[in-house]
Amino acid sequence: CHSECLGNCSQPDDPTKCVACRNFYLDGRCVETCPPPYYHFQDWRCVNFSFCQDLHHKCKNSRRQGCHQYVIHNNKCIPECPSGYTMNSSNLLCTPCLGPCPKVCHLLEGEKTIDSVTSAQELRGCTVINGSLIINIRGGNNLAAELEANLGLIEEISGYLKIRRSYALVSLSFFRKLRLIRGETLEIGNYSFYALDNQNLRQLWDWSKHNLTITQGKLFFHYNPKLCLSEIHKMEEVSGTKGRQERNDIALKTNGDQASCENELLKFSYIRTSFDKILLRWEPYWPPDFRDLLGFMLFYKEAPYQNVTEFDGQDACGSNSWTVVDIDPPLRSNDPKSQNHPGWLMRGLKPWTQYAIFVKTLVTFSDERRTYGAKSDIIYVQTDATNPSVPLDPISVSNSSSQIILKWKPPSDPNGNITHYLVFWERQAEDSELFELDYCLKGLKLPSRTWSPPFESEDSQKHNQSEYEDSAGECCSCPKTDSQILKELEESSFRKTFEDYLHNVVFVPRKT
């Protein structure tokens, strides 16, 4: 048989008469490798580009789960590009990614509803959504962080984005990388972005840091009482949809009607710091009717980097990364020049730590249904340095008659930039024990000054392991946590139920 035959053949030295091919099969003959313009397919066939392209389009058009959109890589027609490569849609070739590779997620039936953290986790790592997304989240724990972890990498949506009755959302900033909504599939009414009845939605994105392009379709905003109209108009300008909307697409009466839409800028007039305090004062603000001013709200939190936005980490279910302080308005003076500047002394802060701070007014709604208010920009203030805590785990070892090696770990709280350490030492008198000992005694162990690591005695271990207080009263049991108490109650309830079950099964009433 021919060298490319495997198993047997019907005619000697003829690659077209093989029972099976050793390498690849091409047009009725066995070959060692697939010549151009053919590609290896499933490690035994040679196919042309049209064959591989037909497989790709067949799966793409069917949208069946589990099928493969075949691509070409290293002269092979394979189910998908290997790690580190992405497909070129024009020629199906796998090309190296520039940075992290995109991950295209194809949605069944063309859309997916995100109504819980669990459903959001199914899209973790996706960068391109081939379909439409509907966000409908009523509640949950730590929602802002969970949504950002699972949806934060999405850069492109081919269909539309719909935010509907998501009472738990305060902001859409968890879509931190969303840059493009194509609108290839539109919501009824030709809408590519749809926001309806979101009672706590206050911000779409921080438009000073976020760009969003909507290729096709219109915007729809109705019944978002805490979303200011200025935020919607800003989205029109940034996304390129200005002029597409009709009169009733953006409701003037049901958007922002319960919001404090600040239209003035508060400026800080005085800032002073110490290692654990920050004193702030800002310019006074009074609405047209000074009785509408209820006070100020001061927001602050630790910020290692200057990239904080107002609604980071917030949701309507209680999660809030900001510390909020309510401040009463100052006494009002008739003389504008003698107006008191409101302020606040922030206490209990960490030394040498940068804080993000902003302040906003708290006002009631005027009778004319106009909203007044003022808010400052987010500023960054760093507390002063102070003395560091003591170095940890000092170790001293003498390696000769004239040297001592000293080692330690950095302090747990540096409280500033540590530039150097101060080492103090003092000579001590020799131990009298060394002169009084009889060095001729056998088995004498000389006193040693070398360091030995501390260890816990058996008594201390027994005390720590004991669940009861000892007789001397030195140790006591740790208080039980809520989960331990709940577990004990469940076990007790189970024992009672099981005992009742045994009584009912074992003891049967005697027939009379």
Rank of each mutant, 00 (worst) to 15 (best):
G152I: 01
I250P: 08
S173D: 09
K177V: 08
K226Q: 11
A144W: 02
K242G: 12
L293M: 11
N130C: 02
E155P: 00
H210I: 05
S260E: 07
T371F: 04
V128E: 01
V397Y: 14
Y160G: 05
W207D: 06
F193E: 00
Q339T: 07
L280H: 00
S208F: 13
F268T: 01
S173K: 13
V170Y: 12
E310S: 10
N136Q: 01
F193W: 04
C126W: 00
S230W: 04
L406N: 04
Q121R: 13
I405T: 04
L392S: 14
T361N: 05
W344L: 10
W344P: 00
L107C: 14
W352D: 15
S389H: 07
H341A: 11
L133D: 00
N190G: 11
N224S: 02
F268M: 05
K350Y: 15
Q199A: 06
V238I: 13
S401H: 08
L151F: 07
F175E: 00
S269L: 12
S166W: 01
M297P: 00
T118P: 12
G295D: 05
L107H: 10
T213M: 08
A385M: 09
K242Y: 11
K218N: 02
G343A: 11
I135E: 00
A303Q: 14
S333K: 12
F299T: 07
R176W: 03
V104S: 12
R247Y: 07
F268G: 00
N211I: 14
L280F: 01
I214M: 13
W352S: 13
L147W: 01
L293G: 05
L293R: 02
R369A: 04
N255F: 08
N198K: 00
L180M: 05
M297W: 13
K177E: 15
L196S: 08
D312I: 14
F174E: 01
T254N: 12
A145I: 05
E156Y: 07
K253M: 13
L169N: 01
N320L: 11
S173F: 06
T241S: 09
R369G: 04
D289Y: 06
D289V: 04
Y305G: 10
N130S: 00
T213R: 11
N307P: 09
Q216T: 12
